[in-house]
Design a protein around this nucleic acid. Structure first.
Lengths: 308, 308
DNA sequence: ATGAGGCGATAGGAATTTTCTATCGACCGG
DNA sequence: CCGGTCGATAGAAAATTCCTATCGCCTCAT
């Protein structure tokens, strides 16, 4: 029963019997039979098939919902019992949006000090993918934008506020400025994330509303690539203050506050809203709550510093 | 996995490997092996044994908690899918305290009209047993006292207020009265429920606080038995107004309001607080919410009538 | 003390279920 | 019309589950 539920979870994830079978570590006929058996037990067709996977029936969607819950609870139970015996141990799977990657260390480092037996898997994903992975039990927690769009069935713990900086060479146009406007930025050759990233969409919106043209010279899904271009002195980029600090400012590269408007996005930890969560996740939430005030303080200091 | 969880639920219920096996429809060695296998998967002993069942370990108690949740969710899923196909169908298991038994029909009758394919199992139990059965997934809903004692992890829907009447022959002492006090009642030979029933404990408390002696002449766990004694004209009893009405008042038997104090107990439907509940249970809650205002109205009318 | 009876664990074999390999038929795109 | 992909099916092998029979331990009554 339990494994059959895992089958349809994998099937929802892969939308392909063969690949879903791989994910589950069984052969395709086994998975096919498992799904069929589940359909027998339920007395309804769960999957629309026609020589291809064609999605789930309405009943299938409901079963899928329950399967997520039941499988999730089972994993949580396992982990809770294990934690009772051996303390916190296991692997914590986190996905973060690229602009937040740099601050994940601020969360994982104290976590690991408290719980040395926990291992981490950290993925870089778009904000949409983060929520998707969370929904499908493929990650334990996400770090993404909170407070703007509806987040679905998750709990959010705000971590810090993202403020934007123009990253550019000191000797480039605008390089000597104490602050710049979004309108001015639109004039320089920008390196930005690809449009599937929410960060890019936010920046596009800001540029457009300032009357500027949102046509970056270069786009990539890697912040490292963007930064390396800025380092040549020939390109500029827009990135969150925290990230700019982490990547390391040199004498030649400056991070200039962008005003009009001074845009602020809240970044936070998101975890499944199910109660109770796994011990590993619960500990991460604790860590986030501890960290949040510190980060906000940093941001305030930083802002005052830049302004003064 | 799933069936192993059912095993320990049965074990918690029966506190005996052999009987638990019977409940699950397997032999004792099968259940033993199942529990042992679960312990293997969890990596912890779940049950304390010493040639006898000696209760669960702390880890076992946690697993038990999760098992209730997971097994309950699985059943709910099954039922929900079934309801999508065939409408509401299946068996609704209800337990009610004896004094509330008579009003269950007010709930089941309209329910059955709306959902003709639903079957009922209705048990008469003490209020403690009702909550216990609910906790162990052995019933879907209970009807018992709400609003007094802590109820645990259940939701309560108030149904009506229980008011007490002295049931006695018209030609017996007090039989001609328009109202009586608790103190007066203590003087007549009473038939009451056994002390394991909360109703009896409530009445005892009222009698005692009125200075009367709480020593009933006859006690039983059956309301029918109590009533049949009253019908002889030689005994009296104290029962809720609703119940007295249902049992049928004749010219010779009167139901006399009891005052000083006029005691009121709220009776309600209790269902597991888990969300979402099974479709069968959800429909019962709907029915209860529909019924509650009608019942309260009756009670008020009744009270005014008795007083006037 | 000692024997009977109840309880849960264990052993070993039967039965069922699960899973695999191999292959088929349908559909899709060229 | 042909090659490739996808999911279903068939049949054999493997694994597991489950049962019967029995054991060892403990309790309680004689």
């Amino acid at each position: 029963m339990m494994d059959k539920l895992e089958f349809i979870l994998a099937l929802a994830q892969e939308r392909h019997f063969g690949r879903a079978a791989d994910v589950c570590g069984v052969t395709q006929p086994t998975l096919s039979a498992g799904v069929k058996q589940l359909e027998g037990q339920m007395g309804v067709l769960l999957v629309n098939r026609g020589s291809r996977f064609q999605g789930f029936t309405p009943e299938g969607e409901r079963v899928l919902d329950w399967a997520r819950r039941i499988v999730g609870d089972t994993r949580t139970m396992r982990q809770e019992i294990n934690a009772l015996r051996h303390g916190l141990a296991g692997r914590l799977r986190i996905a973060a949006i690229p602009t937040a990657l740099a601050m994940v260390a601020a969360l994982t480092t104290p976590y690991r000090e408290r719980h040395p037996n926990v291992q981490f898997t950290i993925l870089s994903r778009t904000s949409i993918q983060v929520l998707d992975l969370l929904e499908n039990l493929e990650i334990d927690a996400g770090i993404t934008y909170v407070g703007n769009e509806p987040l679905g069935r998750v709990n959010a713990i705000p971590l810090y506020r993202e403020r934007y900086r123009l990253l550019t060479a000191a000797d480039a146009p605008l390089g000597n400025r104490g602050r710049v406007t979004w309108k001015e930025i639109a004039q320089v050759p920008l390196c930005l994330l690809t449009p599937d990233m929410q960060n890019r969409r936010i920046i596009d919106r800001l540029l457009q509303s300032a009357g500027g043209d949102a046509r970056p010279t270069l786009e990539s899904d890697s912040m490292i690539l963007l930064f390396s271009h800025v380092r040549t002195g020939r390109w500029a980029s827009v990135m969150p203050a925290k990230l700019a600090e982490t990547l390391g400012l040199t004498d030649t590269i400056r991070a200039i506050p962008i005003v009009e408007p001074e845009a602020v996005q809240t970044i936070g930890l998101v975890v499944p809203s199910r109660e109770p969560t796994t011990p590993l996740t619960a500990a991460l939430v604790d860590e986030a709550k501890r960290l949040a005030p510190l980060l906000d303080e940093d941001t305030d200091t930083d802002r005052r510093g830049q302004r003064g």
